[in-house]
């Protein structure tokens, strides 16, 4: 039958089929995103299981990392990961805040865009570049000039001094923290900038109207309002710092040791995996490295999930207060 109605219904059937296929395809792709996360978690756990079953809780509390006696403990790597990230944040938070303040409040219009773009370009530079720059440019400067000065001036101090002992190697935990800070600044400042811009002008105007200086408006009106978002941004930066591999591997010193001095070499989870994975002999060694990866996944997942939740709340608040 070739009446108009028949053609129409055949046409409609074809359209319906294509509709079903297309919507199914998008649905499958979307669910794939979920399965990716689940898959990563499961695969890591599966690979880590031999090591975790063998060492049990000792894996988290032992500093020993000896491939020959097959004794592996994650403590040194976890310590290094946490300390380098903390140093990175300690440096990056004030700098990012400063950049965000400068770009949103101080900079004249013609300066805003180029400077903003320049800071974002820093985020586009791949991490391996930071690594080689850190090793070949930053480390010698630190070893010859900065670290001896730190040892001489801060070393003798009573409590703080413990952090600055030891020979100046140039590389080590402090250097890794500094390189991480430079990498994290673009992210935190970008979030801070976005968050500062959500502050309603009316609040700022009220502050100025009462006679507050620019700094007072920022510190007492803008920052408290943007607090949740800022913390979210900081935690995103933390998540980035915790998982960073290449920038750290070059300058951390590859020592599975915990030292009290920031000038000592150490290791982080991702640096240990990057350096040792392809040459790990033995199933327990490989499994221990995957277990380190699973640990990192857990830590970063917790941090990033918390950060995203905070940013979500801020978005909702911004939308509702429009």
């Amino acid at each position: 039958m070739n009446t108009a109605a028949a053609i129409d219904s055949r046409h409609a059937a074809g359209q319906r089929l294509r509709e079903r296929m297309f919507s199914a395809a998008t649905f499958v792709a979307a669910v794939l995103v979920l399965t990716l996360l689940g898959g990563v978690a499961l695969t890591l756990l599966h690979g880590a299981w031999p090591a975790l079953a063998h060492f049990k809780l000792r894996f988290l509390t032992s500093e020993v990392w000896n491939p020959v006696t097959d004794q592996f403990g994650a403590l040194a790597a976890v310590y290094g990961t946490l300390v380098t990230s903390l140093i990175a944040l300690a440096i990056a938070i004030p700098v990012s805040l400063g950049i965000a303040i400068f770009l949103t409040e101080l900079a004249p219009a013609w300066l805003k865009r180029p400077v903003g773009i320049a800071i974002e370009l820093l985020a586009a530079v791949p991490s391996i570049i930071f690594g080689i720059w850190g090793l070949f440019v930053l480390a010698p400067i630190l070893q010859r000039h900065v670290q001896p000065w730190l040892i001489d001036t801060l070393g003798p101090l009573p409590i703080v001094g413990r952090l600055f002992q030891g020979p100046p190697f140039g590389i080590g935990i402090l250097t890794a923290g500094i390189v991480l800070a430079i990498m994290v600044v673009p992210f935190v400042s970008a979030v801070a900038r976005d968050v500062f811009e959500t502050v309603p002008d009316v609040l700022k105007e009220s502050g100025y109207g009462l006679g507050a200086t620019t700094w007072e408006v920022i510190w007492q009106v803008v920052v408290p309002y943007a607090r949740t978002g800022m913390i979210g941004g900081i935690m995103l930066g933390l998540g980035r710092a915790l998982g960073e591999t290449m920038a750290v591997t070059f300058v951390i010193g590859n020592a599975h040791r915990i030292g009290s001095s920031l000038l000592a070499p150490g290791t982080t989870i991702s640096a240990a995996i990057a350096n040792e994975f392809t040459e790990a002999v033995g199933d327990l060694y490989t499994s221990s490295l995957v277990a380190l990866g699973a640990l990192l996944f857990l830590i970063t997942f917790a941090v990033i999930a918390a950060a995203r939740l905070m940013l979500l709340r801020l978005e909702r608040r911004a939308l509702s207060s429009v």
């Binding site: 491939p67 190697f169 140039g170 020592a255 040791r257």
Partner: peptide, 24 residues
């Protein structure tokens, strides 16, 4: 592979050569 009490680790003969040349 042994547990060295102090010092910096480097990968391969190349890494040790490089690190030694880099560090005073």
């Amino acid at each position: 592979s042994v547990q060295w009490p102090i010092g910096i680790g480097a990968k391969g003969n190349e890494g040790v050569a490089n690190m030694t040349a880099q560090t005073d």
